[in-house]
């Protein structure tokens, strides 16, 4: 008998906060699509609430947040707290400029992975897959 193929991974991609730099997140959206994933693209100026609602309704397997300005230390933990409050256990991946010194802080806070500028498509896809598999 033919069996149902595993469904594609679903990932919510969003920009949290005011920053409007979306070149990186758009490139990543296409990389993930081309790797066969379903990308639920929320776009600019999202809040932790709107992201939580999207993850619930879309039953996403992962969340990718893109940041340009150095907001990761404020916004990353805020996102994790909102997810925890909603009882959602979905890996959070942060993309953008994150200095080396900040990475252990984000790791400790519970961020599943950080993707810096210049990450290749293979790295992006492998990182997302690994984060989903580990969850």
């Amino acid at each position: 008998m033919s069996s149902t193929p595993p469904p594609p991974h679903r990932i919510v991609l969003a920009k949290l906060g005011l920053d409007g730099h979306d070149r990186g997140i758009k490139v990543v959206a296409r990389m993930l699509r081309d790797a066969g994933m379903e990308v639920i693209y929320l776009g600019l100026r999202q809040t932790t609430d709107s992201i939580v609602a999207a993850v619930e309704q879309e039953d996403a397997d992962a969340i990718g947040l893109s940041m340009h300005n150095a907001g990761h230390l404020t916004l990353g933990p805020a996102m994790l707290a909102a997810l925890e409050e909603a009882g959602i256990e979905v890996p959070l991946i942060i993309g953008g400029i994150v200095p080396d010194d900040d990475r252990p802080i984000l790791d400790a806070a519970g961020v599943a992975a950080v993707l810096g500028p210049g990450s290749s498509a293979e790295e992006v896809v492998a990182t997302v897959r690994a984060a989903i598999d580990a969850a």
Partner: peptide, 22 residues
């Protein structure tokens, strides 16, 4: 800074973490 560029005051919830930063 980003809140000023977007027409938001420093006490807006949107300004969190961005005031005076860039």
């Amino acid at each position: 800074d980003m809140p000023t560029l977007m027409g938001r005051d420093s006490d807006s919830p949107w300004a969190l973490g961005e005031v005076g930063r860039a």
